[in-house]
Computed example of a mutant assay.
Amino acid sequence: MFRDLSRPIETGMPTYPGDPGVTLGPDATHETDGYATSGLRTGTHAGTHVDAPRHTVRDGETIDDREVGSFAFDARLVDLGPLEPREAVGPDALPDPSALDEAVDLLVLRTGWASRWGSERYRDHPYLTAAAAGRCREAGVGVGLDAFGPDPTPTTGDGPESGPPTGGDEPDGTPAHDVLLGGSLPIVENLRGLDGLPDRFRLYAFPLRLRGADGSPVRAVAEWE
């Protein structure tokens, strides 16, 4: 069986605070030109996408540095719900590295936040602590999740540099990203359709071949027997 886990790319879709907005519309039309083409303006981290290490690691690998086969994952679903808005997810919520099958190379974390897509509440997703990201790095597994990312998303300002959005105990910067990407582990963000997936499945998240890019939109597809 196959299931599309991707967000549609469309004009005005939600984007991370400070990222470019997305526009998709006609460039040529059958009525005026006899054929149809469209213009697309998007950031590299719009919609369902994969982060390359270069995203937060200055000298990290870019999207086109990685072999295409590295974007086909043996995934394990981890249901973290129910979670509170902006709840910190610690390492104890994740599988112990010793309990993971060696074939697993991506943990797909279901937070339940996919249902909030398109609303301001989507920014209030739970996030991984640096220690939780460290557990993933110890196990050698990347992370996929149904949220903007593994770090807190600011509710105001232009991005992580604006500081903790609530003034509480949330971390500055992108510590979970840094731990995972610093270990050359993948992060797949803004997944959808995780309800009802089996515990184990194959996840394909092939990026565009963007030269020197720090990330790319993907068509994320789950496959299982």
Rank of each mutant, 00 (worst) to 15 (best):
A114F: 04
T48F: 03
G157V: 04
R123D: 07
R41M: 13
T42H: 07
V68Y: 11
G157L: 04
E120W: 09
H49K: 03
R54A: 15
F148Y: 05
W117A: 10
E67C: 07
F148Q: 00
L145T: 00
L107K: 08
G159L: 08
E67K: 12
G34P: 06
T155M: 09
H30A: 13
S98A: 15
C136Q: 01
T56C: 09
P150F: 05
Y127V: 01
T44D: 08
R137N: 02
A114D: 15
T155K: 11
T48D: 02
D124H: 13
A36Y: 09
G149Q: 00
R137P: 00
T42F: 07
D96S: 14
A52C: 02
A28F: 07
H125S: 09
W113T: 14
V141S: 02
G112R: 11
G90A: 13
T155V: 15
G157H: 04
G47W: 03
D65M: 06
L145K: 01
T155I: 12
V89M: 10
A46V: 02
S70Q: 12
T111L: 13
R110M: 14
L106V: 12
R135W: 00
A99Y: 02
G69L: 08
G69I: 07
G149F: 03
L80Q: 08
V68R: 15
A130N: 01
R121V: 09
L100N: 08
G39M: 10
C136G: 01
D64F: 08
A133G: 02
G39D: 10
A139S: 04
V68A: 13
L77I: 05
G47M: 02
L94K: 08
E67R: 15
G81Y: 11
H125V: 05
G60V: 01
V68I: 15
L80G: 05
S119T: 15
H125K: 04
V141N: 01
D101C: 08
L94S: 09
W113D: 12
R54F: 12
P97H: 11
E102H: 14
G142S: 03
E138H: 06
G81F: 10
T156P: 00
R54S: 11
A72H: 13
F148H: 00
P91H: 10
R58E: 14
L128F: 03
A72Q: 12
